[in-house]
Design a protein around this nucleic acid. Structure first.
Length: 580
DNA sequence: TTAGGGTTAG
């Protein structure tokens, strides 16, 4: 009689991976015990690994089961190391490493062990420990293993030792493809995009992971154009993309506010029948939200079976910056109800949500709940949000006393929010103070908030480069414009259209408020400059006003997005209801 | 049964 053999996982183990509760896991455990399956050490190993890796919240139960085993196999101990660094418990991971090296039945760490040990070290973030582990790797002879090497490279990069990796792994041996990919990824993550790309271009056998690492690097460092160009290159070279590639593509579209390209990417995902898991789903929600299509963002959001803190936070952030503050707060309540723990970013979204509808007291309560209820430490961003919250609501005195009571030094954005409010609420004295602080902090180098200065040209002329950039998408193509920039090939047509807009604005009674646009350009040019509708800086009052008018005159919906808000202009009104 | 590449704010 032929004995029953399973190819791959035992059906019970497959079932185990879909368990939602500890009770279900225990049931399967009991069943496997009754069926005598655990006499096979391999089966016990499968059980422990499956629970630890797929159901990390019940990892302790898997350890209990492991303890019943006198001689746990190496693979299981390795899996437990991996499971623990995955749930950010590096010390436990070290513990299982010690179980391996001190085992009474002569276990020897293998290449898997070191891969996981190195990842554990990266999490601990202690250079001495990392170097000690590197020593062990060499001692055991695993420094030649591509996977171990690749983990070492990313660990060194995280420690800020990218150059060390380059010396060891690029200069001495000809790197294999796994090592090269790791180096591309590590360089890209560290922001060294130029050398990442050089290495990438030199690689004879780039696989999908290499392309994805390069693209992700561009996205992470805000180079959406390069990321999309790389994606087009991928397409033209016939490289088959996967979910991770599309996450980066969507993120690039989100950075650009490129709705048409984002929609195309969504269709493409469906066409390829890629699996829209929680990560890809969150990226979709974020893309639609950042491109201002909140209806579609929420449609995707509700269609997702699994939602994690990223998904909820993206949707909340989208609602908040698009002016739906109450909906943002409501979503937060639902998130808690769903049992998803908020993180620091969630509170940024929530506080922006409070600001856009002027809910100061609610904002205060949420801010306090961060440490009191959720054990989260408010960061400079949260303090900045609070200043913006008081400022937008016109409660300037509270804003300044909040700034004065802050335990951390306020950063330029906090003063910027206050300065903006001072302009709207015409508080010259506080405005001057805020401006002074900004110049102190930045020396005017970034020039971000200088367009809010009201005192005329003299003071601002000391400020050298005012940097302002706008992007806009037309027919699936993204265009970038800088102030005073005439390099666009269709400049003549653009100029003509701008003139038409100017003319019609003038007919409608518009007079450019050039005082708030203090760039190093001629007076006539200034008037034109105020008409550019999409800005990366905070939308100034003139832009706000003029965009309202354009939306009415040309009967167009206009979505303007900048670093911290989106504005929807229709029929001469703006979605911000005055809170901007 | 275990290894590389992925998302959120400012």
């Amino acid at each position: 009689m032929r004995s029953l053999r399973y190819v791959g996982k035992h059906p019970n183990v497959v079932l185990l991976e879909t368990c939602k509760t500890l009770k279900q896991i225990k049931q399967i455990h009991t069943q496997m015990l009754i069926n005598g399956l655990f006499t096979d050490l391999k089966m016990l190993g499968q059980f422990v690994s499956a629970v630890a890796l797929k159901q990390p919240e019940y990892i302790d139960y898997s350890i209990q089961v492991l303890e019943q085993c006198e001689r746990p196999p190496l693979a299981v101990l390795n899996s437990l190391m991996r499971a623990h660094y995955k749930i950010a418990k590096p010390c436990k991971s070290f513990y299982f490493y010690s179980r391996i090296v001190k085992s009474s039945h002569n276990l020897k760490p293998d290449n898997y062990t070191f891969t996981f040990l190195i990842r554990t070290c990266a999490q601990l973030f202690v250079e001495e420990t990392s170097m000690a582990v590197y020593g062990s790797v060499i001692k055991y002879g695993f420094d030649v293993d591509p996977h171990v090497r690749s983990s070492l490279i990313s660990m060194f990069a995280e420690l800020g030792l990218l150059g060390f990796s380059k010396k060891i792994f690029l200069e001495i041996f000809e790197p294999d493809s796994v090592t090269s990919t790791a180096m591309v990824s590590a360089s890209a993550k560290s922001g060294d995009l130029v050398s990442a790309r050089e290495l990438f271009d030199r690689m004879p056998d780039r696989d999908l992971a290499t392309w994805n690492a390069m693209m992700a690097g561009y996205v992470q460092w805000g180079q959406a154009r390069e990321a999309l160009d790389l994606f087009y290159l991928m397409q033209s070279e016939g490289v088959k993309v996967n979910e991770a590639s599309m996450v980066s593509v969507l993120s690039a579209c989100a950075q650009f506010g490129a709705l048409d390209q984002g929609r195309w990417a969504h269709n493409y995902i469906e066409k390829l029948r890629l699996r829209v898991d929680v990560t890809l789903g969150s990226a979709l929600v974020d893309m639609y939200a950042k491109c201002g299509d909140m209806d579609k963002a929420m449609e995707v959001f509700w269609s997702l079976k699994e939602k994690n803190v990223y998904t909820w936070t993206s949707a909340m952030g989208g609602l908040a910056v698009n002016g739906f503050g109450n909906e943002c707060l409501e979503l937060f309540a639902r998130m808690k109800h769903a049992g998803v723990e908020p993180n620091e970013v969630t509170f940024v979204s929530l506080l922006i949500g409070c600001r856009v509808v002027g809910l100061v007291e609610e904002g205060q309560r949420y801010f306090e709940s961060m440490s009191n209820v959720y054990g989260l430490q408010p960061s400079i961003e949260h303090y900045g949000c609070m200043v913006a919250l008081y400022s937008s609501a016109g409660r300037l005195d509270e804003a300044i006393s909040f700034i004065n009571s802050m335990p951390i030094k306020p950063h330029v954005d906090a003063w910027g929010a206050l300065l903006n409010a001072c302009k709207i609420y015409k508080n010259k004295k506080l405005g001057k103070l805020a401006f002074k602080k900004i110049v102190e902090l930045e020396g005017g180098a970034r020039g971000t908030y200088l367009n809010f200065m009201r005192t005329g040209r003299g003071e601002v002329s000391q400020v050298t480069e005012v940097w302002d950039c706008s992007t806009t998408e037309a027919n699936g193509e993204v265009h970038k414009f800088f102030i005073g920039d005439k390099s666009n090939p269709r400049q003549a047509e653009i100029k003509k259209k701008m003139e038409e807009i100017s003319q019609r604005l003038k007919l409608a009674g518009y007079v450019a408020n050039t005082i708030s646009v203090l760039f190093d350009i001629e007076e006539e040019e200034k008037e034109n400059a105020t008409c550019v509708p999409v800005k990366n800086l905070r939308v100034c009052s003139d832009c706000h006003h003029v965009t309202k008018m354009i939306s009415e005159i040309f009967d167009r919906e206009i979505i303007v997005r900048n670093t911290n808000s989106s504005y929807h202009f229709t029929n001469g009104e703006c979605s911000c209801n005055g809170y901007w």
